[in-house]
């Protein structure tokens, strides 16, 4: 039933796919973390904040896959590699989520902290940098971690814009040898091998930070 010979060919190829998957996840997530924080802060500005909110809502309620294909097609003949486009779209899509997480953290900072900053007439960058964000971010670390796993599990969508991640590799080899069963089963196993331990780590983080 299970083709061992084919498995030997599959595994090294899938590992190279996993490498691409990890690159997309790490860079996409870094972008989502930075951009999300910027959005969360800008949302507190009147008018501009509401406009940002509407755009964010739109990005968040429409499928990532369509966004990927959309931007990929628009970029058309430009020389940007599909992986870079994938990273940018993943990052922007998830920044709509991380922004909400940051916002909940910022709103959770006690009012007295803001008042104390004002009483000390701290400059804005110190208010955010030294008082609000250190408290806000600490509380939302587990929630942010969940989105890292979620993003990792969304990387197979990059298949649609021809990025050679795991699923594309499995699909290519599966078609070549006409053995889709082993190919896709192994991809599933690879996902479990990465995401189950990371879920355990997030649970530890939750116990450590969220209880504060």
């Amino acid at each position: 039933m299970w083709d061992v010979e084919f498995t030997r060919i599959l595994i090294p190829a899938l590992l190279s796919g996993l490498w691409v998957t990890l690159q997309a996840t790490v860079f996409g997530y870094a972008l989502a973390l930075v951009l999300g924080l910027a959005i969360a802060i800008v949302r507190r500005v009147p008018v501009v904040g509401s406009a940002v909110f509407v755009v964010m809502e739109f990005v968040r309620t429409t499928p990532l896959l369509v966004q990927l294909v959309f931007i990929f097609s628009l970029s058309g003949l430009s020389q940007v590699s599909p992986l870079v486009i994938g990273i940018v779209v993943l990052g922007v899509h998830y920044s709509a989520y991380t922004a909400e997480v940051y916002r909940s953290g910022i709103e959770g900072v006690a009012k007295g902290q803001w008042e104390a900053c004002r009483a000390l007439s701290l400059p804005t960058y110190r208010v955010w940098g030294a008082v609000v964000l250190p408290q806000a971010i600490r509380k939302v670390i587990p929630a942010l971690g969940n989105y890292l796993i979620a993003m990792f599990k969304d990387t197979p969508l990059l298949f649609a814009i021809s990025v050679p991640e795991m699923l594309s590799v499995a699909n290519g080899l599966g078609g070549q040898y006409f053995r889709f069963f082993e190919a896709f089963t192994l991809v599933g196993v690879a996902f479990l091998v990465v995401s189950v331990p990371s879920a355990v780590i997030i649970r530890r983080l939750e116990r450590r930070y969220a209880a504060v």
């Binding site: 197979p156 699923l167 599933g188 995401s195």
Partner: peptide, 14 residues
């Protein structure tokens, strides 16, 4: 733990 798209490929092709 398994991505939705991977599951979909599995139910459709595997």
């Amino acid at each position: 733990g398994i991505a939705a798209l991977v599951l979909l490929f599995w139910t459709t092709y595997s």
